[in-house]
Write a protein that binds this DNA or RNA. Structure first.
Lengths: 173, 173
DNA sequence: CGAATTTCAGCGTGACTGAGATTC
DNA sequence: CGAATCTCAGTCACGCTGAAATTC
């Protein structure tokens, strides 16, 4: 078992109060801590639900991305770009997925430098089944109304925009 | 270098559009993906700022928690409880902090099972300096107004509440 | 005795750096 | 030739499980 999962209070609220009495304004610190915590809760829950399929959420994302592509096939570089992960991490993920028979790798006939990862029939089946499981579980995202989900997405997106995560409309680069 | 950090579009918006044409409603999936991404961006930035102090954000949190305690000292179990991390992770973090001379560990005289982690003078100095750096950087949280920060915190907290991260007011256990 | 606390060994995951091989 | 793409080796941080040691 993990540490007692229950305290008689919200540890983040508590930390915020203490923070204010020591350092001042605490709302940013509270947001940061919350993001870390929520990510941890979500990822744990999603990984749990994906465990029967023997994949992690990170690998599930790769499968979904391939599902979306026209030929169920993408060069590794494109995968890294879209998922915003390190090239070596892609290599690693694809390696595991290949070992599980969910994707197949082959050299791009049009550019020998590239390796294409292609969904196998089994990969497609698994993606479909795993997606159903996650959707039935509301992606582990509970407690928010549809409007609140949209609002949350918007706020997160606003931060991403200002952090340069994607170009603003009309931005010139 | 990492993969090109810039795409001509927001990959999460794009994934959402594709998701809807394949699977349906995408707002939950978009929120989940955003949380993962925002956590990644924030953590990378915070760790970067803390690098000169040779600590990670996780270890910084331990130092701050100790700073808040009356005797600048807490049993490891309490640290794990408050920070919501696994006992072995606490052991690991404290080990590193001790090796850096930032905390000292000693057996609790009142309960031999416990180990107390205590801030050293150097640990206090470093915490103060690191906190200044992070606050000056707005904790890497840019692009949101004060009201929006509060709103974001509230939405995240609402999810945490429903995920059982802390007791509701009046909840009986 | 059972329960709590900490530690250790070990596994899995993922991020990253730096270097190489291959191809364009 | 330089640039792009992928891979490999190796490091590091972290989360977890399971088991042991100690103390209450």
């Amino acid at each position: 078992m993990t540490t007692d999962p229950r305290l008689p209070f919200d540890p983040i609220d508590r930390a915020g109060t203490l923070w204010e009495s020591h350092f001042g304004e605490s709302s940013q610190m509270k947001v940061i801590t919350s993001v870390m915590r929520v990510q941890q809760l979500l990822l744990a829950e999603l990984d749990q639900r994906l465990k029967p399929f023997d994949i992690t959420f990170a690998r599930y994302e790769v499968l979904v991305l391939l599902t979306f592509s026209k030929r169920k096939s993408l060069p590794l570089s494109k995968i890294g770009e879209r998922l915003m992960v390190h090239p070596t991490s892609v290599t690693n993920a694809i390696q595991r997925l290949e070992a599980q028979g969910l994707v197949q790798r082959l050299t791009d006939p049009e550019d020998g430098r590239r390796t294409l990862a292609t969904l196998t029939p089994e990969g497609r089946r698994l993606t479909k089944k795993a997606t159903k499981v996650l959707m039935d579980a509301d992606f582990a995202l509970t407690g928010l109304s549809p409007d609140e989900e949209v609002a949350l997405y918007g706020l997160l997106r606003q931060f991403r925009a200002s952090a340069g995560d994607f170009p603003y409309d009309g931005e010139v680069t």
